[in-house]
Design a binder for these strands. Structure first.
Lengths: 174, 174
DNA sequence: TGATTTTATTTCACCAGTGAAATATGCACC
DNA sequence: GGTGCATATTTCACTGGTGAAATAAAATCA
């Protein structure tokens, strides 16, 4: 089912709810649309990654290590930069090690830590893979002016700030 | 970790990647920010639903049935309106039936079908629950002018259209 | 009418993410 | 210099979503 059709269904559904309970604001539609887009965006990303037999988590982790100074990092750091849960890192790293894209070993300075280092093969892999993903990415924002891009960026960050405020206040409704 | 901090980390990470591979456009940041926001938005929703012991899937299904004319619908229809996978519907419906919010039985007209009908208790439940979610929703768009809301809406739908185009063209890179 | 195709739902096996607890090392303080 | 607290990673049990196949009831049509 096409995303545009899903949105149409969603619009109808919300219209129905608002008829039944008028206090419900139109903003719920804005939320749902973002959730639907994100879902589809994620699918698009996974689609582009499929030929490389990577999922998004592995991709993010690999890129984080790639982009980190020295091409090496620790599970904790990688999780910070990728917003992945620490608990998943072990499995993800296992997968990357198995494919020879990174190595993993104990740190010399702090032996609680583990260092994950990108291999030369991993570096080549990233340098080949990333550019191949760009054409479809370009299509995504087809028809967007620079102005629209920056407006979208601004509004999304504004929304993100509000969301962060909510996080602060999370404990206020027991 | 606060959403705003996650975004900060993400920004840094992408800056690093773009230093290494300059062809990578800034648009990837826009994508990632949307994914992060959606993740957090989903969490916010689940947070609001927790007191009612519902997850978002169950919530969406229940609302879809509630909003449907006659307060009754079929698994397939509910899936259309909620963008849930058909395969999940059985489990979700089981949960809702067990809680007495809906009933489920074979259809009289077409016995391949199953009808899911909201119970009086389910109706009361929705009417009590929905309004209680509004205050936090309001905070979400705090500081947004109507103009900004509609701009965001427009840009998101534009993006959704592009994504739908991509869906059409999905099979073009074997 | 009986064979074939289509539609609707369910079942099952599998994959990915999560929180709580286990493990192991380092750090600080008395 | 040992005891206790903090940090880093891993393990495990559980939850939720997915695709492929099973089941069952129409609908189509020769």
């Amino acid at each position: 089912m096409l995303l545009s059709d899903k949105i149409k269904c969603m619009d109808e559904g919300i219209a129905g709810v608002r008829r039944a309970i008028p206090e419900v604001p139109a903003d719920v539609g804005l939320c749902r649309i973002m959730l639907l887009i994100a879902e589809r965006l994620q699918a698009e990303l996974e689609y582009k990654l499929r030929p490389y037999k990577l999922n998004d988590s592995e991709f993010r982790a690999l890129i984080a290590i790639f982009a980190h100074p020295g091409g090496a990092s620790t599970p904790g750091e990688v999780c910070q930069f990728t917003s992945l849960g620490v608990t998943n890192m072990t499995r993800i790293a296992n997968a990357l090690v198995k494919r020879g894209l990174i190595t993993r070993g104990p740190s010399d300075e702090d032996r609680r830590r583990v260092v994950m280092k990108i291999t030369p093969a991993g570096k080549r892999f990233v340098q080949k893979m990333l550019p191949s993903m760009l054409p479809r990415l370009k299509l995504l924002f087809d028809g967007f002016t620079n102005n629209e891009r920056s407006t979208l960026n601004r509004l999304l960050r504004k929304l993100a700030n509000n969301l962060s405020q909510l996080e602060h206040a999370a404990g206020d409704s027991p």
